[in-house]
Every structure is written in C-alpha cells, then in structure tokens.
C-alpha cells in the first residue's frame, strides 16, 4: 500500500522532537546533524534509515546556509524534527533567503553534469527521503522518511 502524501496533514498530529535555530555558518551544521542523529538513535530508528535522514538533513542545511543565507551569520536557519503517530519522521528546514524553484534544478546524472563539482544536493535529498516538499517559495523544505 502506498502511504498517503503528508503535505496537507495537520501539524497537530505531529510530535515535535527537536526545534533548533542556528546562525547561517557551515561550521554550525555538524552540531545540528549530530543532534538529529542522537535523537533518531533514542527513537531506535534503524541505522540505514537514520544515515539516510542524516545525509538528507546535511544537504538541506548546507543549501539553507549557503544558498538561502549566503553564509551570513546574522541570519538564522531553523531545523525541526517531528514524528507522526505511526512513527514516521519529518524534518523541516527553513531559511530567510530569496527562495528558489526546485523544478529547475539540473539532473546531476546527465553526462554533461557528471563531472560538475556542485549541484547534487537536491537530487540526493529526493533519492534518500520518501517524500520531499518545497514550500514558501523554496524557503522551507519538508522531508518525510517512512
């Protein structure tokens, strides 16, 4: 059975496990991914699933810091970790930047892009997570792992 999409699921059904704000600095990202990982370990999330969530979070946080905030430490990135009653995980990352159109991201697997030194982040997120939604003009990403 294919799980129903969660985009319109009311937030009141979700339990908040973490809600972290941090300055837009790549050096601050490791502490956030470590906190996410520690929480997933406490929830007994299987290793394989936990590692996929961690990498997706890393990618989304780098995008928020570098592209959303231009690594401006005066800006804040927020990362929230929630679970639904079935134990499925959602990570929500928000930045105050100009946003972007996720539909125009180039396919990094195309021959002309394989040797590029950037442009794999959104693709990896989509491969690693079960459901990915960009909202608020690209300022917010909601990523589900079942």
């Amino acid at each position: 059975m294919t799980p129903e999409p969660h985009a319109s699921r009311p937030d009141k059904q979700l339990s908040e496990l973490l809600n972290l704000g941090f300055p837009a600095d790549t050096e601050a990202i490791a502490a956030v991914t470590d906190a996410i990982s520690a929480t997933l370990v406490q929830l007994l999330v299987p290793d394989e699933k936990r590692l996929e969530i961690e990498l997706a979070v890393q990618e989304a946080l780098v995008n928020a810091v570098v592209h959303g905030c231009q690594s401006d430490r005066s800006k804040e990135v927020r990362c929230r970790l929630q679970s639904d009653p079935q134990g499925r995980i959602v990570v929500i990352i928000t930045d105050p930047g100009p946003g972007f159109n996720p539909d125009v991201v180039a396919d990094p697997k195309r021959p002309e892009n394989v040797f590029a030194d950037h442009g794999r982040g959104v693709y990896l997120i989509r491969q690693l997570m079960d459901e990915v939604h960009f909202e608020k003009g690209g300022n917010e990403i909601r990523m589900w792992k079942y």
Partner: peptide
C-alpha cells in the same frame, strides 16, 4: 563515515 554532495564535488573537481 560520511560524505555529502559538497564532498563529492570536491572529489570530482580534484579528480578532473
């Protein structure tokens, strides 16, 4: 233990 797309980009760039 861990490589992200930025790390992959570094490897590809240096390799090229």
């Amino acid at each position: 233990a861990y490589i992200d797309s930025g790390g992959l980009g570094t490897l590809v760039g240096v390799y090229s």
